[in-house]
């Protein structure tokens, strides 16, 4: 989640001149299981598809400021399964989402009650691969209440859960989230604990949960640290994501980290697990992920364009020459 408060940290230090070379990861496929595309531009979609990202999950979360009415939630959830999914498909990227009431807005109890009434209408929608992102922010009583209610909903709908762990007091918040999930009878194998770091990963894995790592500059993990985590803990039940949003974040975090892992001598099988396969295994428990769709989404869109006689080459959306001063 956004944003980078520490500008000093952002601007200090040497700049690393290593440049991403897409040839290093040529032919590899990536799955980013946490990215907020509503906050991103079409340039990002194009860069993502060029870098080998074939599918993404967009978790429902807050919008940088609190919503004041239930209809705003309704429209937001609708946009995740509607316009944003279509936008993504135009670039040949398969778009899934998780639906939930985020922890920050759980603190507005009057509104939260109404959102809880709304959620059952969305959990069975096509391409909804889990309840998320839910969990703790300030670790208040209201946050706990709606976290528990949503865990029950996940259980009833047999859907995986995507847990957001707090920025502050992270270790305790992560432990508490896992305790509560177990208390509600969820299988750790159906729960993805997100935004891990070196302090939390061991316990998350030991207890049988999935451990997701967010590669996000300045406030979360850097990818050099991530390389070390994989060297130490291996690739079982570990996945990486960008959590790119409106903060200074990087929608190419997954392919970049894969490239860095390759340079650092991590095996291709491990790279594939943490940057593609594990996310599919975990969220695929929803029954909503069919890998054939990763290819179909490219073919279908192209044929649609051909049928309407658009002259398009090498992709779904017409390319513009970014370096040209002329805009046609």
């Amino acid at each position: 989640m956004c944003c980078n408060d520490n500008f000093q940290e952002r601007n200090k230090g040497e700049r690393n001149q290593d440049v991403l070379d897409l040839n290093d990861i040529n032919g590899m496929q990536f799955f980013d299981p946490h990215i907020h595309m509503t906050a991103r531009t079409t340039d990002d979609y194009q860069a993502m598809v060029d870098a080998g990202i074939v599918a993404i999950i967009e978790p429902a979360f807050w919008l940088g400021q609190p919503r004041t009415g239930v209809d705003s939630f309704k429209d937001y959830y609708s946009s995740l399964i509607g316009w944003e999914r279509f936008r993504s498909s135009q670039f040949g990227i398969k778009h899934y989402c998780t639906i939930g009431l985020n922890s920050r807005e759980a603190n507005n109890e009057e509104l939260a009650e109404q959102v809880m009434e709304l959620l059952p209408q969305f959990v069975f929608k096509e391409g909804v691969v889990g309840i998320g992102e839910i969990g703790f922010d300030d670790q208040t009583a209201a946050e706990e209440k709606y976290f528990r209610l949503q865990l029950e909903l996940a259980k009833e709908a047999s859907l995986p859960v995507q847990i957001h762990t707090p920025h502050r007091d992270k270790k305790k918040g992560t432990q508490r989230s896992m305790d509560i999930a177990i208390e509600h009878g969820l299988s750790p194998y159906s729960v993805i604990v997100d935004h891990n770091n070196e302090e939390t990963v061991k316990e998350v894995l030991d207890r049988g949960f999935w451990a997701a790592f967010t590669i996000y500059p300045f406030t979360k993990m850097g990818n050099e640290r991530m390389v070390e985590v994989v060297k130490q803990y291996g690739s079982e039940r570990i996945m990486i994501n960008s959590a790119a949003d409106w903060g200074i974040s990087d929608p190419l975090a997954v392919p970049k980290t894969a490239a860095l892992m390759k340079k650092s001598g991590i095996g291709l099988n491990d790279i594939e697990l943490v940057s593609f396969r594990n996310a599919i295994t975990a969220f695929g428990q929803s029954g909503q992920i069919d890998e054939h769709d990763f290819i179909a989404i490219k073919n279908i869109d192209q044929s649609q364009k051909f049928a309407s006689n658009s002259i398009l080459r090498g992709g779904q959306q017409p390319r513009i020459d970014k370096n040209s001063i002329i805009i046609k």
């Binding site: 609708s78 509607g82 999914r85 096509e126």
Partner: peptide, 9 residues
């Protein structure tokens, strides 16, 4: 209509 995803629409 108000909560439909694409195929539902």
């Amino acid at each position: 209509f108000t909560v439909a995803e694409m195929n539902e629409l």
